[in-house]
Computed example of a mutant assay.
Amino acid sequence: MPESDCLFCKIIAGEIPSSKVLESDTTYAFRDINPQAGVHVLVVPRTHYEDAEELAKAPKELADVIATGVEIAKQEGIDQSGFRLVFNTGEHAGRTVFHAHLHVLGGEQLGHFGRPGG
């Protein structure tokens, strides 16, 4: 997918509105429009990487994304109660946007992880 067609690239560029939570030189974080937890924030690298596998080839940017996720957990007050950091990569993971992004989830007791209902 060309970057010009990427939803998250358009959000980063300000072409599509978002509810910004935190930003840095390398990352942009905003609230998910379909939250799956009390706190659900997406952290995206400003540079377009298709998925976590591609982002892993850029260790500095990957570290920045994760550090931003941890900072958001602190900022949102969920660092002590617990939070989840998730990358969805590939069809079976349920990825719907082809720009690497980290989900920061918390603010309530989260269910089990893995298979639905499992």
Rank of each mutant, 00 (worst) to 15 (best):
18 S>A: 14
31 R>S: 03
17 P>G: 13
17 P>E: 15
12 I>K: 00
33 I>P: 02
30 F>W: 04
7 L>V: 15
7 L>Q: 07
23 E>P: 14
45 P>H: 00
38 G>L: 06
22 L>Q: 10
31 R>E: 05
36 Q>K: 14
18 S>P: 07
8 F>C: 03
24 S>N: 11
21 V>H: 03
31 R>T: 05
25 D>I: 06
33 I>F: 09
30 F>N: 04
20 K>S: 09
27 T>E: 04
45 P>Y: 00
10 K>Y: 04
21 V>M: 05
37 A>G: 10
31 R>W: 01
19 S>Y: 04
7 L>F: 13
27 T>K: 06
32 D>H: 07
37 A>P: 13
29 A>V: 05
44 V>N: 09
17 P>L: 14
32 D>F: 12
43 V>P: 12
7 L>W: 00
44 V>A: 15
22 L>C: 04
35 P>I: 10
30 F>E: 03
44 V>H: 10
9 C>P: 13
8 F>Q: 03
27 T>F: 04
36 Q>Y: 07
7 L>Y: 08
33 I>H: 08
46 R>F: 10
36 Q>L: 14
32 D>T: 11
42 L>I: 00
27 T>A: 09
39 V>R: 13
11 I>T: 09
38 G>A: 10
32 D>Q: 06
18 S>W: 02
16 I>H: 11
45 P>I: 00
35 P>Q: 09
24 S>D: 13
43 V>T: 06
30 F>R: 05
25 D>T: 13
44 V>P: 13
45 P>T: 00
39 V>Y: 11
35 P>R: 11
40 H>G: 04
12 I>Y: 03
16 I>D: 11
43 V>W: 05
18 S>H: 06
14 G>R: 06
28 Y>F: 15
13 A>K: 06
30 F>Y: 05
30 F>I: 04
31 R>A: 06
27 T>N: 09
45 P>D: 01
8 F>D: 00
7 L>P: 07
26 T>R: 15
38 G>C: 10
